[in-house]
Nucleic acid binder design. Sequence first.
DNA 1: ATAGTTATTGACAGCGCTGTCATTCGTCAA
DNA 2: TTGACGAATGACAGCGCTGTCAATAACTAT
Lengths: 306, 306
Amino acid sequence: MVSEGLRTRITKAVAELGYVPDPSARALASRRSNVIGVLIPSVTNNVFTDVLSGLYDTVAGTPYNVQLGNTRYIASVEEDLIRIFLSQRPAGLIVAGIDQSPASRALLEQADCPIVQIMDVSNDPVDMLVGFSHRDAARAASEHLFAQGYRAPAFIGARMDPRSERRLAGFSDAIKAADPNGKLRKLTTQEPSSVHLGGELFDRLLTLEPDTDAIFCNNDDLALGAQFAAQRRGLQIGKDIGICGFNDLEVMSAAYPSITSVRTFRREMGELAARRILARTNDEDAGDPIVDLKWLLCARDSTDRS
Amino acid sequence: MVSEGLRTRITKAVAELGYVPDPSARALASRRSNVIGVLIPSVTNNVFTDVLSGLYDTVAGTPYNVQLGNTRYIASVEEDLIRIFLSQRPAGLIVAGIDQSPASRALLEQADCPIVQIMDVSNDPVDMLVGFSHRDAARAASEHLFAQGYRAPAFIGARMDPRSERRLAGFSDAIKAADPNGKLRKLTTQEPSSVHLGGELFDRLLTLEPDTDAIFCNNDDLALGAQFAAQRRGLQIGKDIGICGFNDLEVMSAAYPSITSVRTFRREMGELAARRILARTNDEDAGDPIVDLKWLLCARDSTDRS
DNA sequence: ATAGTTATTGACAGCGCTGTCATTCGTCAA
DNA sequence: TTGACGAATGACAGCGCTGTCAATAACTAT
């Protein structure tokens, strides 16, 4: 709101004096910070780092900063972090999942900034949502196992958070659809997921359910570990045992044999979530509050019986 | 600095009114924010996420917040981010590497907050440093290859940042030590690292240098990809071809066959760096400004010729 | 009892911006 | 020339804390 001439003089003075605005003064006076808060359960899980990557790339170049909160899969930590973040009057908040505690949910609903829930779908988001249906995705993957001719698929899962439980439900749907009296072969644990654990669960499962002929793994780490364990036993991947992961990390297609997985669009989730916050903040149209990014089944050698 | 009675009354009022301090007002008045800035080149690279994990865990429970900057391996982005972060008067700054641009270096030297460089060693840190010698580590790994009886080891590397170059130098040291006239077999690229790329580089290298009998990989992703590619060719891992990675991600020991790697203490690096910042901020003794965390060679099946 | 200390409390300026409102300038029609 | 009106600019209160300093209270030693 200043004339061209004044603007030039100001810009010159800024350069001469090396003036840099003070974000805290700005935040205090405008009652609004340039921070976009992000709450994820783990900073090492590749699934979330891909989301982060999309997020950082989208926010780079804007005046906004991403501030990351690590909930470590603990609801009370999430609640504390929401409180801390909101006290900063953030430009927006992005939270992973739809399963916040009632207290967290209440905090989010009262917040006067745009909120995006990611990584899952729900018809009752706090505000906006970008995700996909874990249940549908898992069901599609499990149906693929039946379609490939496997008759006794099992589920292994670690760190059974609500999203993992929904994947298990999707697996269970497929089992029931194939045979209403079909047996639900599964082995899950609350331990953090790892490649090692995948191997361990595989071995234990085959003791528990020796007739298992295919495994749907809660995530790709487990699938990779299961494949290594199967190879260690001398099993023919695909032929003797089918293996399917979830998320389709880069390693799945590079593995030998390549491993079937369900691709999820994690980078896009981060990008879209950030874009929606930015749009809302700039009073632009953010589009439909709910975005379902779907998934893509990537069938590979590990479920090829031929 | 108030009496017990007053303190109780204040605490009660705080609870009644639901008072939450405003971080920006606090930052403005005290001329010091509670932000610890962290600059890393990638948010998806497991190497850095492990550091982050240690960092977040150490900072959790303190009044400090981590703010992450993603430099994307671009020096100018790093410089911009340093400027932005310093304008927030952070409690401290943690930057990956010792190879900042002169401008970045100058900014850091003038900063009036504790600074920790991580992931590398140098006898001339800006302030404090927690890292290890990539050159020594790579040399030790390469010497291991010779000790195992391999005679023509090669180096493959992607995303050749300064740390990778130092690893290549360490490899080269070992080659020269084994035979002053020894051939330096190597294939490097600036492309981002991936498991796929490991396989690709492996294949191209074996065309370029057909007598190669062992591969030292710049990182574990490449090593895993190289191993898959070798298996695809029907090579006996260890016997026909030795494979060694770098960083010792969890997958290395779980792989079949298990893959030799050089363990680096990434989590500890994050913890120590955070601890140092906190100590300095609280006017405690932060200890020696330079910490060398060393490394640990983990010899496994992939370099076992027996 | 008095002076000298130290512990405790209150008062308030000011951190560097933003948002609002008043003022001045420039332009155009009457 | 004058008045009216919109554009451009300046002035300044106030955002919610912190740090400092003054005032007061509670002791202690003389």
